[in-house]
């Protein structure tokens, strides 16, 4: 299908973009990489009155290490992030996750800001941002604010961004000593949305996971943090019994959806498979 008609704007600056967002209100949509929005336009799932294309706003595509951590600009393309030595060194979880996102010809356009703001519950980046304890930077005509990743994702494709607000960057804290990451996912085909994905970030000490942050995609309306599985891992010697116990805790705390792609029972099982792989990987790495 073809999109319904819309008005197209290509602001040259953030103030211009914010003015347009205010002018169009609920009829205006921000166009970044377009790899989720344009399919929605083509299928007429989205019929905005105006598109505000932020692609030509300079400075929004930075990938930079600052005092606050690794800063990924809203327009940083996933292909560039995937290949960035800074990301590999300071946010290995994201570097591991990105090859799972769709395919190369999508990642060349797809942006960090778009992937976070779109908030697809099966998407990889939101789970990574929550696992890493990152923040989202948002700008409106009232000023800028930072939103913690755990508070940012509110529901299926729903975020804490308010009317007239645009995501400008995400910030990932610097990798602390001893912390390691493991991202893995299971999908029908490579590049499809995850049936289940696991972003695991943990502090390894004395052959155990002293602290672990486990965040899953594809098992709920938002990225889902698995607090009981985290507790079952923390500080334990990971023998077969301990691993079974952690996988059981995970299966008990998850309440995944059943849909055409997989049943809830299959998703629960796959989450356990990913947990076992992640624990082994984190301890070996």
């Amino acid at each position: 299908m073809k999109p319904a008609p819309f008005v197209y704007h290509r602001p040259a600056s953030l103030p211009d973009a914010l003015a347009l967002l205010e002018r169009y209100g609920a009829e205006g949509r921000v166009l970044a990489g377009g790899q989720s929005l344009v399919p929605a336009l083509n299928m007429r799932l989205a019929t905005p009155g105006a598109l505000i294309d932020i692609n030509r706003i300079p400075g929004l595509d930075e990938i930079r290490l600052g005092a606050e951590g690794l800063v990924l600009g809203a327009l940083a393309r996933l292909d560039a992030v995937e290949r960035s030595p800074l990301v590999a060194a300071h946010a290995p979880l994201i570097a591991q996750a990105l090859p799972h996102v769709a395919h190369l010809a999508v990642r060349t356009r797809s942006t960090v800001g778009g992937g976070i703001a779109h908030a697809d519950p099966a998407a990889e980046l939101p789970a990574c941002l929550v696992a890493l304890g990152g923040t989202v930077r948002a700008l409106s005509r009232r000023g800028s604010r930072e939103i913690g990743a755990a508070e940012f994702f509110r529901g299926v494709c729903t975020t804490a961004l308010g009317p007239g607000e645009v995501l400008t960057a995400v910030v990932v804290p610097r990798l602390a000593p001893g912390w390691r990451s493991r991202f893995d996912e299971l999908a029908r085909r490579h590049g499809d949305y995850a049936l289940v994905a696991l972003a695991a970030h943990a502090r390894v000490a004395d052959g155990t996971l002293a602290e672990a942050r486990l965040v899953l995609a594809g098992v709920g309306a938002t990225p889902v943090r698995a607090a009981r599985a985290e507790a079952a891992l923390a500080g334990r010697r990971m023998d077969a019994a301990a691993l079974d116990a952690a996988a059981r805790a995970l299966a008990e705390e998850l309440d995944p959806p059943s849909d055409v792609h997989a049943s809830a029972a299959l998703r629960r099982h796959l989450a356990g498979v990913l947990l076992r792989r992640a624990v082994r990987g984190l301890l070996e790495a």
Partner: peptide
């Protein structure tokens, strides 16, 4: 497919591989 899945519309824009159905 017109939603970026099939790859039949792949072209290069400024040297980068893209889906021509997902770019205006």
């Amino acid at each position: 497919c017109e939603h970026g899945v099939c790859g039949a519309c792949t072209v290069r824009v400024d040297g980068a591989l893209v889906r021509a159905c997902l770019m205006l």
